[in-house]
Design a protein around this nucleic acid. Structure first.
Lengths: 192, 192
DNA sequence: AAAACCACTTTACATAGGTCAAGAAATACT
DNA sequence: AGTATTTCTTGACCTATGTAAAGTGGTTTT
């Protein structure tokens, strides 16, 4: 249930239960329907979101007008368009609900207060961003060194929620391949 | 010259000249020879580095034992293995001088002091990390949507220092292609 | 229940880029 | 200077993945 969401996501040695209560009190619940937007490109992010239920994605439009899904945010993860939120500039990304979803929002100003008043939140925040950067880099490396089918299998093992809930087209662009190729990969997996 | 390096890299509306002096005082100069390491995989990062002169690269070893250059750090940029430094865990990346170089180092503990005592440094640091994340994501998108030769030309326009100073093999792995392919791309560019 | 639409699959064909192996050119080593 | 080593180029061939277009099945709209 919900308390567990906060405990999981704000888990850090320096964050004690008083800290946590104060943090939690600044979040508000949002219920989303499939395809609802949390952020649209061109607008500045003014909050980030903890995902309690459902699946969220980030995507950009490339020059050809194709949507490229750049991130999936599963349950018990954080949806934060860091670049727009912390540099105070318009976002190039869209954040959209892939399924019906429940998220908890915290506004920039409220987070700003926590960040500058609580050492524990600063440490937590910096670690979270470091981990994001690490993951993004690992994904790049995987794109360079591994085949599309390996990447698909890897995603299937590590983040099955995505495979189950996202449409093929979104998964394909996330893996960096054409949707027809992903369809082929799936067929080959069945027959082997 | 050197003062300019700090002004450029610690440029932020909240950082005033007193702040800057304090920041600068915690850096020490390091002279590197080609191929010297600033960080080796398996070890924990304990500092980050401002690059005054020369070219630095980050690389990882993939499963086949191939080196993959994941980042180039040019003059007036910062070399920081964020994930290891801020999560206090061993690095999977190596940081190495591609050419002879001059860098300025700041130790984790000293930065930690600045970060928790000066709001301006916190804001600066968070923005710098946001920008890093943005760049990393943009590079991923480029890898998916653009051809190898486009990526090469793009690098040539935006970061010519890399093309001039790094060996072909490192550039190729950074672009996500085989070195023979990059050689071919170069040939085709000459003849067109 | 038609019609329209959407998500996915399948086939045929095209091509960017990979692999391997052989040379050439440059650099470093003794 | 001469040898060894690394770096880069080139050619022949191969394969993973892209593109385009048609087909299938399911879902929504009217």
């Amino acid at each position: 249930m919900t308390a567990n969401l906060f405990q999981t996501l704000y888990n850090h040695p320096l964050i004690n239960s008083d800290n946590l209560q104060e943090i939690i009190s600044l979040h508000t619940k949002i219920v989303l329907q499939k395809n609802d937007f949390l952020l649209e490109e061109g607008k500045m992010a003014n909050a980030y979101f903890l995902v309690e239920a459902g699946l969220i994605r980030f995507y950009v439009n490339d020059f050809n007008g194709n949507e490229i899904t750049t991130q999936f945010i599963c349950e018990n993860e954080i949806a934060n368009e860091v670049s727009s939120l912390f540099q105070r500039i318009p976002s190039v990304q869209n954040i959209q609900a892939v399924t019906d979803a429940i998220v908890w929002k915290i506004d920039f100003n409220d987070f700003q207060h926590l960040y500058h008043s609580m050492e524990s939140v600063r440490e937590w925040g910096r670690e979270w961003m470091s981990a994001q950067l690490f993951q993004t880099q690992q994904r790049s490396i995987e794109m360079i060194t591994q085949s599309a089918s390996f990447r698909y299998l890897h995603l299937m093992e590590n983040r099955p929620q995505i495979i189950q809930q996202a449409p093929l087209k979104q998964i394909a662009s996330y893996l960096g391949i054409a949707d027809t190729s992903l369809s082929r990969i799936r067929k080959d997996l069945v027959s082997s």
